[in-house]
Nucleic acid binder design. Structure first.
Lengths: 177, 177
DNA sequence: TCATCTTTATTGAAACTTCAAGAATAGCCT
DNA sequence: AGGCTATTCTTGAAGTTTCAATAAAGATGA
């Protein structure tokens, strides 16, 4: 995926000043592939599990959980988008759908007339209560039951490092679009 | 995400035989969140990088790379789907799009009249050559430049373990759908 | 051989995401 | 106040993915 597109071997010795692209080592390639396989399979697995048991994709479920943990079970759109690391556009569409399902309701923000609050409804909350056990079980079976506590901790640390490098808050930030 | 939907505290002491759902510990929750943040941000980042520089999403790029590494730069649809861990349906649509772009061409399979071969075209190959350096740089900057070799290796190992648990090849296998 | 079951791949529709554009309000500066 | 810029959120269209259904050919077995 990230190695040279086969063959284009070339450069390898030349101590070029202009330094050609630093391809990944064999080990790095293996790691990268493993990562892509893991997240592709995992997302697929959880999406199916939740689609079946809760009638919505993994991300939507995550949005409801976020709301359930927020004070008064409500959150500003932008804030919710930031927490979930998605764009506001995507969130708008998502909330619209969840609203049609009756899990979420929109409310105007008292302090800022531009703002909207996404509010978890009672039905939404009840629904979470019903589907959470199954979801936790799925995550546990796929991840935490298979890694030692040390492995899990290291894995988490690596993920934190990677994530921290990706929201420079500068440049053009996705969730602001 | 995977903890109880806030509040539904309850059970914690009772040595129930029926064992209620085993919620995630604080540490596990942190790990799980970090993972979701990492992959969401990473996929987003790479998708944008490739969309901008190569005119296609990350997965499509991966398909071309797979083809570039295959003998004679061609592969059976099902085989390609398996390697990429995606469904055949998704692959069909993807290849159709890449074909419109001229990066891939379909050929009939000589040994099995049901089969199709996805073949990387010269333009497709040339294009890979052009965009690979930028992509590698992006992956390196986001991942391998930020982790120590040990961390990267451990991360890879964890991913391998997770991935290996998710394709039991049994039950109903996604890429066969 | 015929019937049947399996495998391969595609298709269209519905659901979801991205992208660019736009409406409304807030904030700032003179 | 007035004018300008920035922020918040939504929208529609285009692109992508999922899901269920289907066509075509291989494989199996009486």
């Amino acid at each position: 995926m990230t190695n040279r597109p086969a063959e284009s071997a070339a450069a390898a010795e030349a101590p070029e000043a202009e330094a050609g692209p630093r391809w990944l080592t064999e080990t790095e390639q293996d790691t990268w592939r493993a990562y892509m396989h893991a997240y592709t399979l995992l997302e697929d697995h959880l999406d199916r599990q939740l689609q079946r048991d809760a009638g919505m994709p993994h991300i939507y479920y995550g949005l409801l959980v976020q709301l359930s943990e927020a004070p008064r079970r409500r959150m500003r759109m932008t804030e919710l988008a930031q927490h979930a690391k998605i764009t506001r556009s995507r969130l708008s569409h998502a909330i619209a759908r969840l609203e049609r399902n009756g899990w979420v309701r929109r409310e105007e923000c008292p302090s800022d007339k531009r703002g909207q609050l996404a509010v978890l409804t009672e039905e939404g909350f009840a629904m979470l209560g019903r589907s959470a056990p199954g979801h936790v079980a799925a995550v546990r079976a796929a991840v935490f039951d298979r890694l030692t506590p040390e492995q899990a901790a290291q894995f988490g640390e690596a993920c934190r490092i990677i994530a921290s490098g990706l929201q420079p808050a500068g440049a053009d930030v996705p969730w602001l679009r």
